[in-house]
Design a protein around this nucleic acid. Structure first.
Length: 373
DNA sequence: GGCACTGGGTCT
DNA sequence: AGACCCAGTGCC
């Protein structure tokens, strides 16, 4: 069925409230791994844009399916990252990079199987922001519709690649090839956070988030990892989740950040953010230093402030305090089934609402910014 | 000891 | 089946 969504969570004609959900329709729910070809066309691309689907893609090509991806590249602008292209190639995709003074700015995704062409036309890039917190509009056209309008993926991609443009085909076999110079390193040390990404996540905690925080040492309630469970709509709040698990058989994608626990004066340079790609799709923030501290209970707000590309400050605001009441109205996204909610506020507003003083990272004038498209 | 893993649960 | 919720085990 055709459907349209203005996301995240603004308006939708169908069940799917976001672009990732719509793509799950096309690539997971209504697709058998190995069937036909999956398509990704996007002007911009970064690692977290695809992290939900890398396992899906691998299974698809392992069973004989194909994947065609087309991204924009440039030596001057940060359009598509080396990390996402590397991962897509590892998934078995054919990746085409278009280097053009006026960039390919189209975004569409879909699948071609014996049953027809599914097409998602969207403003959302294949990036964390495009898939998460940017306001984007997406339309899914089903196989009947694409047939009636005589759309075919083969026709469009053939026409796209037939243009007299500067095309490159990066490969894992030659990482020094010119194609890779059209891609940027999203983990480069000199990249600094864009102003618009200097935001604070406000998360109302639930029982599972705080059980270990309130456990008595030595009891069963304190066993296991201390996490905050996050919404998957928050991929763009964290650095690229490029670290793969080493033991275990279920794929996870994680990254390490520096977390400053302002309430207890602890700084953890190895705070792990994990996407459990093959275990319930959990998205978890490891907060081990809070164990046994008793400083947060269900209902309280955890404020997680991004002060740099991989540096955060965490503060707990207890329910009932004046600061809590001011912050609560920002936790507008209702998730889960235990009353959890979350939201974002920009860092200056957060300082005004709470009176806290953030330890800002001095951002160098003219330093290259992390794209937020 | 702590946390990467595991594998369920529950509601929608 | 998705998306948070939950309670550990056992490896490092």
């Amino acid at each position: 069925m055709n459907q349209l969504a203005l996301h995240p969570n603004v308006y939708a004609t169908g069940q799917n409230k976001g672009l990732v959900n719509i793509l799950e329709d096309v690539w997971v729910r209504n697709h058998r791994p190995g069937d036909g070809t999956l398509f990704v066309v996007s002007g911009f691309g970064n690692y977290n844009g695809g992290v939900r689907f890398y396992e899906t893609f691998k299974e698809h090509t392992r069973r004989g399916g194909r994947i065609t991806a087309v991204f924009s590249g440039s030596t001057r602008s940060r359009l598509t990252s080396k990390q996402v292209v590397h991962e897509m190639l590892g998934c078995g995709a054919d990746v085409h990079i278009i280097n053009r003074k006026r960039l390919l700015h189209a975004k569409c995704y879909g699948a071609l199987t014996d049953e027809g062409n599914s097409l998602v036309v969207t403003s959302g890039n294949f990036t964390g922001p495009g898939m998460s917190q940017n306001v984007e509009l997406s339309v899914l056209l089903d196989r009947e519709t694409t047939a009636s309008m005589q759309f075919s993926w083969d026709g469009m991609v053939t026409a796209l690649l037939r243009q007299n443009w500067d095309y490159h085909r990066p490969s894992l076999g030659d990482l020094a090839a010119p194609a890779w110079r059209l891609l940027y390193d999203e983990q480069a040390a000199e990249l600094v956070l864009d102003d618009s990404a200097e935001v604070t996540m406000l998360l109302r905690l639930s029982h599972a988030d705080t059980a270990r925080i309130n456990a008595a040492p030595g009891t069963n309630a304190g066993k296991g990892s201390q996490y905050f469970w996050l919404s998957k709509d928050c991929f763009d709040f964290f650095p690229p989740l490029t670290i793969r698990n080493e033991r275990g058989h279920k794929a996870t994608y994680s990254c390490l950040v520096t977390m400053k626990y302002m309430d207890i004066g602890v700084e953890d340079p190895n705070c792990r953010v994990t996407f459990e790609a093959e275990n319930n799709l959990d998205f978890r923030l490891g907060t081990g230093p809070l164990r046994y501290r008793g400083i947060a209970a269900a209902g309280d707000i955890a404020a997680i402030t991004r002060t740099g590309e991989a540096t955060y400050e965490l503060r707990i605001f207890r329910e009932g305090t004046r600061q809590f009441e001011r912050l609560r109205e920002y936790t507008i996204n209702l998730i889960g089934h235990q009353g959890k909610s979350y939201g974002f506020v920009n860092n200056s507003d957060f300082e005004g609402l709470t009176g806290v003083h953030l330890q800002r990272i001095a951002s160098r004038r003219g330093a290259p910014r992390i794209p937020t498209v």
